[in-house]
Design a protein around this nucleic acid. Structure first.
Length: 499
RNA sequence: GGCCCCAUCGUCUAGUGGUCUAGGACGUCACCCUUUCAAGGUGAAGACAUGGGUUCGAGUCCCAUUGGGGUCACCA
């Protein structure tokens, strides 16, 4: 890159609803690029469509970016030297430049009604021609314009696309792309409500905000010739462009969307919204790590690494131009990797709100002891509720059925006997440590001619109420002698009832 | 349909003309470890879409075909 301008990139979403994971990815790549080059990452809100703007979504969006660690240097809520960073607050600027374009014959007012536009299209279709505006108002005389104005029609402003030749654009990821001008449209720049369209607004803003690189999803590539010509018309120095590959639906069809995402093989719903990832118990580090491995690779075969490493090595040249189905199954793996990499108190700190949200009362001492036990066993933070919620429940919930206590090749009677003997042996264990407990129970299993799996299995269900749990004796150690014994007794009685 | 982009295991990817009988990861399967479940260890199956060129030599370059995606708004 020979561009000497300081790196300034932006993420420019429109606050029209919840943030999509694809948006997070676009933001992430911009952020990585900025951080790698010690440049600035800017957040700009593109709220020029009054009808679609939904209140509160801007705040949610900013919250999500922060949750993912994508801090911006300039933005709506923090300001900056080139503000305001909300397009609805810059309408005068766009109108001024729309006016300038008209005065310099790069654009023209168009008085056509939506009805006429629709009619033109239908007729063209009937004749088998390409659809599109017929440029009816492009060559109106001053008198004709005056007449329309006199009728009280508020025009839109359309760009005068060159009628001949071609526009050769340059994309950092794909190289040169050539478009035929005759096939382009005279796009609307300023709507009749006085607000600009994306084409005008982003060019004006990118210029006045001194944006050096425009990195956006490749859905924008087809409109690049229009933007390219617009930059030429106003005569400003163009930023460099990079059109990022998009995320595709895992179920095969189309770009990733809430509507069509579907379910994975194991029946889990495919997550699409940023908030869904936040709520599902994923670590921001894991989601960021996950996203960096799609369409970009670090180059050395590793896939689990901190974002600091990504910043260090991030390079647009390594961005894969092909779209990709997002490998959602890797997220669980990466999340597990990240969970296992956390220090105990850090993991405990993140686990606490999950337990509290499930209505459990969290004792810090217990949590700190439970955390290492679940660390290799949970894929998401939320998994702790099912795996170890019993540590924090007010009242013990025994297994739903005594059948769960009874292990294979055993019956109610032998199980009850084993449990009662276990009770006696546990009651006299010298010091209540998991080592002592395990030694005592192994001895008992041998004495009874049971496999450890049989005895331990019954005890596990007795003590935890679950077939799957953290290691049995560590669990009993945390629960304590009295409560453990009570539960063993309870299970023995429960089994006895079916004899 | 027009235009544009893209094309390596099921999926994410490495691969920038010879080191590719194509490497890694997730997932899957098997075995080991093991008190359940995980984690961990070992191993297995699994891909250059097709057809033409260019070249001494092509996964890598060119063309076509096929397939996929995007886009054709007074939405971004």
């Amino acid at each position: 890159m020979t561009d000497a301008r300081p790196v300034r990139v932006r993420f420019a979403p429109s606050p029209t609803g919840p943030l999509h994971i694809g948006g997070v990815r676009t933001a992430l790549f911009n952020w990585l690029f900025a951080r790698h080059h010690q440049g600035k990452f800017i957040l700009r809100l593109e709220d020029t469509d009054q009808k679609r703007t939904v209140p509160g979504s801007a705040e949610q969006l900013m919250g999500a970016l922060r949750w993912f660690g994508l801090d911006y240097d300039e933005g709506p809520d923090i300001g900056g030297p080139y503000g305001p960073y909300v397009q609805s607050q810059r309408v005068d600027l766009y109108q001024q430049w729309a006016q300038w374009l008209v005065e310099h014959d790069y654009a023209y007012p168009c008085y056509c009604t939506p009805e006429r536009l629709k009619q033109v299209n239908e007729e063209k279709e009937k004749r088998g021609e390409q659809s599109g505006y017929d440029r009816h108002c492009r060559n109106l005389t001053a008198e004709q314009r005056a007449a329309r104005e006199a009728e009280g029609i508020t025009p839109v402003v359309r760009f005068k696309m060159p009628l001949e030749g071609e526009t050769v654009v340059h994309d950092l990821i794909r190289g040169q792309v050539t478009f035929e001008n005759a096939l382009q449209q005279d796009a609307v720049l300023l709507k009749s409500d006085g607000f600009p369209t994306y084409a005008l607004a982003h060019v004006v803003d990118d210029h006045f905000m001194v944006i050096s690189h425009v990195m956006r999803s490749n859905e924008w590539l087809p409109s690049l010739p229009l933007h390219w010509q617009l930059w030429d018309a106003v005569g400003w120095e163009r930023p460099q462009f990079a059109h990022l590959p998009v995320l595709l639906n895992p179920n095969g069809k189309g770009k990733l969307s809430k509507r069509h995402a579907g379910f994975t093989q194991d029946g889990k719903q495919v997550l699409v919204l940023a908030k869904e990832f936040m709520d599902a118990g994923y670590l921001p580090e894991a989601v960021v790590n996950f996203l960096t491995n799609i369409g970009w690779s670090i180059g050395d075969d590793s896939e689990f690494f901190p974002v600091s490493k990504t910043i260090e090595l991030f390079d647009l040249a390594r961005v894969n131009p092909a779209d990709s189905v997002y490998p959602i199954e890797k997220l669980d793996w990466l999340n597990g990797m990240w969970i296992r990499s956390l220090e105990n108190d850090d993991l405990a700190r993140r686990l606490r709100p999950v337990l509290e949200a499930a209505g459990l009362e969290v004792n810090t001492d217990v949590l700190l002891k439970v955390t290492p036990l679940v660390q290799t066993r949970i894929k998401t933070l939320n998994d702790i509720v099912d795996m170890a919620g019993f540590f924090f429940r007010e009242e013990f919930q025994p297994a739903a059925s005594p059948d769960e206590v009874i292990q294979k090749k055993m019956d109610a009677e032998s199980t009850r006997d084993a449990l009662e003997l276990a009770y006696d042996h546990l009651a006299v264990v010298s010091t209540w440590t998991h080592e002592n407990l395990e030694a005592a129970m192994r001895a008992l299993a041998e004495e009874l001619g049971l496999k450890v799996g049989q005895l331990f299995g019954s005890l596990r269900v007795a003590v935890t109420g679950q077939q799957v749990s953290p290691p049995l004796f560590e669990t009993m150690e945390i629960i304590g002698r009295e409560e453990s014994l009570r539960r063993v007794k309870l299970a023995a009685d429960q089994v006895a009832a079916v004899e």
